[in-house]
Design a protein around this nucleic acid. Structure first.
Ligand SMILES: Nc1nc2c(ncn2[C@H]2C[C@H](O)[C@@H](COP(=O)(O)OP(=O)(O)OP(=O)(O)O)O2)c(=O)[nH]1
Ligand SMILES: [Mn+2]
Ligand SMILES: [Mn+2]
Length: 553
DNA sequence: GACGAGGGCCAC
DNA sequence: AAACGTGGCCCTCGTC
């Protein structure tokens, strides 16, 4: 039996060997790991089923979802080619990235039970061998037509795989006793809030149900609905709408507080301890094939959205601790996307600001709140961040009004002035829209692409959203590329027993022995600053901090 | 009990 | 008339 796996020809039925090992001491090979053994295929004509440990650590994997293979194979293995990531880089719009879906689409081969990694019959082994070699050959050819995308794969994504695999395995330690105490405290305060809210409402209802809350606010309490945004189900009870009612009824303040506490308790305080291992460590999964810009995402649990901006929320970060004798280090790029926007656009005003040491977030905050630069609070700088990025990426005067509370007129004037002051930035963003329209895609500094089909939509709202996405991607995506390179560098540079444990888009969290903290901080910072392309008109700056727990960083 | 949609909100 | 972008997770509610 032969199956047509490549357009060019047919591939022989591979032989399956179970009781002997191949003459393989390292190099490239198709690998597919199972629970306690692995499929190894050095050439397309044959494959071996052997104990995982028999795969040499100098193996360079050609596989699907190779990060999982790396976790199961001897340390030292690397990745030659990952067909899942290749497929994603070639087409990030792909909804289905399962091996079976790729096999169907690219090779016309149907794999019955997608994702099943147990029960390896000879037939399954042959199928996997054919499909993996087939996809490898297909995607290698396709990537060869787009050398810049190929280089993103070989220089960024594949070297990152072993780094991510180790980060996920190592995990981060959680102080579950601290969170348990916090949970009791929150439960008590929530009880009080519920009592007060229901007494204000004069009736029993579920505060967590936007539908019921809406009835209480706009029917029972007769609060005015002018200016309140409609949803499919009626009136919105989102924060922006409640804000308009804040002065009209004391229940609003209570609802805000209740929302904040339930959010923190349900999403973090109670949920995280349920997910620790026997050493009280949390292990996230970092995805490389989800975001349309090239950022990582983190899931189960998401450790990239741990609260920090509110004091109440930041207390949760104190639960992320270093092991006895260790310290946590954090390094975060300063004003990262603003710097990248300046560099990519060549806007002279922004470049001058950075080269003279201005902190644009702080500057915007001082302007927004009418205070001196030295008097800007953390909270004010956070708000300024939202304003700076919001305006850069297309926020409307109305949106700025909602975000800041300034009048629509002031908001419009602010936006006009923002771009008047930064005309080079405006031209660059405009050129990105043109590029998206003419080429159908936009790309990062390193050549990572995002197709933009909606840029041609006849629907104004859809088209406008695509334009805003198009101006964001090259900047956010370049941030993502640089961060990944920094992680690869840091992995090489960090001292023994110093481990990266989390990546949070433009920052890296490291756990290391106390006595190596200073050295490691310096290595981490240089790694991150070193990835800047050579001829940048400004430098990348990195802020570092260290402590026994995340809350003090 | 699982699933998806909707509303909402945490982070960068 | 409406207009920051990128994510993931929570709850409710209806359905299967
Ligand atoms: N579009 C958009 N991007 C954001 C927003 N918040 C953060 N980002 C992006 C741009 C930032 O440069 C990047 C990293 O976030 P940070 O919180 O570290 O902010 P940034 O580096 O700008 O300032 P920093 O000097 O670190 O305080 O994430 C936002 O509200 N909208
Ligand atoms: Mn930053
Ligand atoms: Mn950051």
């Amino acid at each position: 039996m032969t199956w047509p796996l490549t357009p060019g020809g047919l591939i022989r039925k591979p032989a399956v060997y179970r009781d002997r090992n191949p003459d393989f001491t390292g190099g490239e090979a198709v690998v597919f790991t199972l629970e306690d053994y692995a499929l190894l295929s050095v050439g397309e004509g044959e494959c071996y089923l052997l104990p995982r440990a028999d795969i040499p650590d100098s193996a360079s994997i050609i596989g699907y979802h190779a990060k999982e293979d790396l976790k199961k194979l001897p340390a030292g293995a690397s990745v030659e080619f990952d067909v899942m990531i290749a497929a994603f880089l070639l087409n990030p719009l792909l909804r289905q990235q399962e091996l079976s879906a790729l096999a169907k689409q690219e090779l016309g081969v149907s794999m019955d039970e997608p994702g099943r990694r147990d029960d390896m019959t000879d037939e399954t082994a042959r199928l996997l061998t054919r499909v993996l070699w087939g996809l490898y050959n297909r995607y290698r050819q396709q990537l060869a037509e787009f050398p810049r995308i190929y280089s993103v794969a070989t220089d960024i994504e594949w070297p990152l795989l072993p780094v991510l695999a180790r980060m996920e395995e190592y995990g981060v330690k959680l102080d579950i006793d601290y969170l348990a105490a916090m949970s009791r405290d929150f439960a008590e305060r929530l009880g009080d809030l519920e009592t007060q809210i229901k007494s204000q409402a004069g009736e029993e209802f579920n505060i967590n149900s936007p539908q019921q809350l809406q009835t209480v606010l706009f029917q029972t309490l007769q609060l005015p609905t002018d200016n309140i945004k409609r949803t499919q189900t009626g009136y919105s009870t989102g924060a922006a709408e409640l804000e308009k009612l804040r002065d009209l009824h004391p229940i609003i303040e209570l609802i805000f507080h209740h929302r904040e506490l339930t959010k923190l308790k349900n999403t973090y305080i109670d949920a995280l301890p349920e997910q620790v291992d026997s050493h009280n460590r949390l292990h996230t999964t970092f995805t490389q094939t989800v975001t349309q810009t090239g950022r990582l995402s983190s899931l189960e649990p998401n450790l990239q959205n741990i609260p920090v901006r509110s004091e109440e929320g930041k207390a949760i970060r104190r639960a992320f601790i270093a092991e006895e004798g260790n310290l946590l280090l954090q390094a975060d790029y300063s004003q990262f996307e603003l710097r990248l926007a300046a560099a990519l656009s060549g806007d002279q005003s922004m470049i001058d600001s950075f080269n003279s040491g201005v902190d644009i977030h702080t500057q915007t905050a001082a302007e927004l709140y009418g205070v001196e630069l030295g008097e800007v609070t953390k909270q004010q700088r956070y708000n300024a961040k939202t304003v700076n990025f919001g305006v850069m990426y297309g926020m409307s005067p109305h949106g700025l009004h909602v975000a800041t509370g300034m009048s629509r007129e002031d908001a419009k004037a602010f936006i006009d002035q923002y771009f008047q002051l930064r005309s080079g930035l405006l031209e660059y963003l405009d050129a990105l829209k043109t590029q998206a329209k003419e080429e159908g895609y936009v790309e990062t500094w390193f050549g990572r692409r995002r197709p933009m089909p909606d840029i041609h939509s006849s629907n104004f709202a859809v088209r406008s959203a695509a334009e805003r996405a198009a101006i964001n991607m090259p900047i956010q995506g370049t941030e993502a590329d640089l961060m990944k390179l920094a992680m690869i560098e840091a992995d090489k540079a960090l001292e023994p027993d110093c481990r990266q444990i989390l990546q949070i888009h433009d920052s890296i969290l490291v756990e290391c022995p106390q006595e190596r903290a200073e050295q490691a901080t310096s290595s981490l910072k240089s790694s991150m600053e070193s990835v800047a392309p050579q001829d940048l008109p400004l430098s990348l700056e990195v802020e570092t901090s260290s402590g026994k727990h995340w809350g003090e960083l």
